[in-house]
Amino acid sequence: MAAAAPPANPASITTLAVERSLASRKRDWLGQVFQVVLLLSLILSLAIIVFLLSNVLGGAWRVWTDRGTDFLTEGGSRQAEAAGVWQGIRGTLTLVGFVVLLAFPIGIASAIYLEEYAPDNTLTKFINVNIRNLTGVPSVVYGLLGLAVFVRTFGLDRNDEGGLTGGKSVISAGLTLAVLVLPIVIITSAEAIRAVPRSIREAGYGVGASRWEVTRMLVLPSAAPGILTGTVLAISRAMGEAAPILLIGANTGFFSSGNQSFVEQLQGTFTALPAVIFGWARETSEFRDVTAAAIFVLLVITVLANGTAVWLRNRFEKQW
């Protein structure tokens, strides 16, 4: 605007000069290249996802148009055209059941202990360091733990036959996955509990509530959304893990048949989606499309679980 009107006095000439020198950007080639390179690296990492998903979608689409829902209801097979994911889905959901029933209560209880009850002593510090380290242990090592403890120690009786867990069984795999995600559940729940303001606790103690009453009635409801988010993270981690369950002995064969009792089924052989995917990925290239389709199913289940959790969390938050 100053440029439009001719300057009337020396003062405004100065103003004009200053404005111009500020407006004319010196060309900063290096800076611009730098920024573009950074942006490219971000775009590249996002592009990998898009590309990967489109690849998976392509294969899944071909299977869907060829076979329809048949792929979802069939069991494993040596023939790519006949192979389906039903047993994998069932196995994955059963294993998630173990995680929900074991890792969640124990994990949340541990987090409550560490945040609300634990005195400031060596044992507490040790537990905390230990949990942090457990999150960094590679999943294949958890598989070895499961193999040694659940499959062999608790799995074989004196005649080397199926014991308590049934050896390479649903129970062994479920326990292993529960152990694997336990540190994640503890850490995320502890963070959520820590985020509840101290003033809420003080108010509760101030009217004569006991520690457990404060925890159960005030802290946990406030921390529930965060805890829920953490547990969903744990579920998706458990659903995607292949190495430990393969070590435990998941096979691409089949689940126990229907005429066994519930306990016998749990002590029987098993499979799960990641194991199915692993098995098919190593097959001939005829299995490419069904593998992609199985991956698609796994991703859909994961997204559904995440979505449910987000929905639950939003409902929880509205109450407060």
Binding site: Y117, I131, N133, V137, L144, A148, V149, T153, P183, W212
Partner: peptide
């Protein structure tokens, strides 16, 4: 309640012991 929660927290130590024990042996 305190005892129950403490036992839950001790399970994580049990896991580490389990890992080390089964691997080392």
């Amino acid at each position: 309640v305190h005892v129950v929660l403490l036992s839950a927290a001790l399970i994580s130590i049990l896991i580490s012991v389990g890992i080390v024990y089964s691997l080392v042996g």
